[in-house]
Design a protein around this nucleic acid. Sequence first.
DNA 1: CTGAAAGCGCTAACAA
DNA 2: TTGTTAGCGCTTTCAG
Lengths: 357, 357
Amino acid sequence: MSRRPRTSHPDMPARVTIRDVARAAGVSLGTASRALNRSGPVSEAALQAVERAAKALAYAPDPIAQSLRTGTSGVVGLLVSDLANPLYARIITAVESRLQREGYAMVVGNTHNSKAQEELMVDLFRRRRVDGLILGPCEVERAAYLEEISRELAVVAMDRDFGASGSGVHVDHFRGACEACRYLLDLGHTRIALMTSDAALRPGRERIDGYRAALAERGVAVDETLVRASRSAMDLSFSDALALLSARNRPTAFICLGTRILSGVLQATRQTGHRVPDDVSLVCVGDGDLPQLYSPAITTISWDLEAVGTAAAEILLRAIGSGEDRAKATEPRGQPVRLTTQLVMRESCAPPPASKT
Amino acid sequence: MSRRPRTSHPDMPARVTIRDVARAAGVSLGTASRALNRSGPVSEAALQAVERAAKALAYAPDPIAQSLRTGTSGVVGLLVSDLANPLYARIITAVESRLQREGYAMVVGNTHNSKAQEELMVDLFRRRRVDGLILGPCEVERAAYLEEISRELAVVAMDRDFGASGSGVHVDHFRGACEACRYLLDLGHTRIALMTSDAALRPGRERIDGYRAALAERGVAVDETLVRASRSAMDLSFSDALALLSARNRPTAFICLGTRILSGVLQATRQTGHRVPDDVSLVCVGDGDLPQLYSPAITTISWDLEAVGTAAAEILLRAIGSGEDRAKATEPRGQPVRLTTQLVMRESCAPPPASKT
DNA sequence: CTGAAAGCGCTAACAA
DNA sequence: TTGTTAGCGCTTTCAG
């Protein structure tokens, strides 16, 4: 990357520095700094003078210089597997807005769910001296890795494991899946397919556990062929669902827990001519346009995405605030925030068809 | 924002600086710098020694220090009205990935389509010395404003006007709307409603113009009550569409040009009991899940979002590269890139019903 | 070709 | 309370 100095526009006023302010206020550099930051004793008179001068000159401190000096940047990094995933997109918006209110900037990056890519980005961000990191799930989870970087940096995990002492925000996917499954069981289904995102990630793991728990409650044995944890790629779930629907003893319900999974399953039902909800019941996750407007409207496990983002930002802010103590930070950081899901009933679930197909 | 110095972990190795490299290589600081950056004459021997030392120590330059010295940051800012808009989300992903390959970081921000907010963020980014800016449409467009900041910074506009000399990437919404409208006219529709995003923004303006042009071609007079340019809020388009559909002389087709507009119109058709495409034909924009999977699948004006992002990133990179000359940059920058849309025909359009409702 | 030295803008010790 | 000074890590003159 080129690092040539930017030639300044000839007739552009040079940047006003704290020096200029000090001179204009008739005080020394140090006093100006202390006044501006209220970081030390300053006489009332000096304070006034400095503030007036600063305003008059429209002085704004140079964050870069501050960074170099303090080791702090006023920037936080956010890393998720896919920025374009609408779920993340909404969370990010919430994070950004909360952070911005505090004067922080946010740099974002995509891990594409790859450990290597994640480490690369974390390293990059760290070198840029971000004050904190928000990390979404990524490939196989390594709580140890998070613990390691959190010794040096404020880190908050989103839907991702983070050792005993780690702080983060978790959605209760266990309960979400469990409730959805119970709901279908109550309707009379026993052959319920679970299609979820990668089981190596926390959300996938929790969902599978929740599903198993619900079945166990009712004494229904788990048919392992009905549990599909793939990488939430639409085409994959399409072919999976297709296979499932064409099998002799096909499932009568699908729980689709991944942003793009619903699409795949929907296409499969359409292609095999199964009607929703008469032939097959559907529950999905992530309350977007599609589940709301599809006919029939799809019953959804939903949760407050804005709350996830806001909570993550706030935890991070707090962690940065108490950053001094990071070195000796063995004391447990605040309990991870847990958000609960809500089952929004719509029209996509019905009792299973009486006759087997 | 707190600017306290970060206390370093007691037993954490101090950062490796270029000094350490120089010492290890047995050369002076300056020589090490020149060797690392190939920015001046260095003997072969020195070069080798420095590179070896750098590798051995795992030296990585401090971007903050580089920034302070060079006035360059290796960061670019991206501002759109709404990060959570799936269209932007995908563009952003493309921008990020292109930028990352070049070693740049990306800070993002939300303007919420407000001029004030945009100026605030631009200012913030500028102070942080971003090397470039990518700006999406925002409120009433002010080409003059862009020209102004572009004197100091590399700027590329996305779907936004930018004076004569400005560089940017534009989607040909004019042609998109025009083609869609022609298609409906060919089907026999004459009462075609156009619901689009804010006419103060380039995409909205172009779409309206394209719509008018298509009607004019066929000698169909424009009924102004059928042209609704709102702020692409779903509820607004819902009530608009509801009113339109309930009117005496209702439109027989809708062109829905805004991410959330289709949802609103779909709800309205459902509520009024109009069937698609028998009673009313639909064309929308932005090829997401909903138009693809809805029954009937919705005919869509689509374009390559990744290409938009990649092009924006590349133009910006080029502009930054030739940044020296910005001061005397009256020479026209490269022509704005134009991307064209494609009409994806599906099942949501049919000839208008013979009888008026 | 190389080394020494200045300084980007700021904060935090320290001395007065 | 204040002013002076020493850097943060780096690039870039300017002499040698």
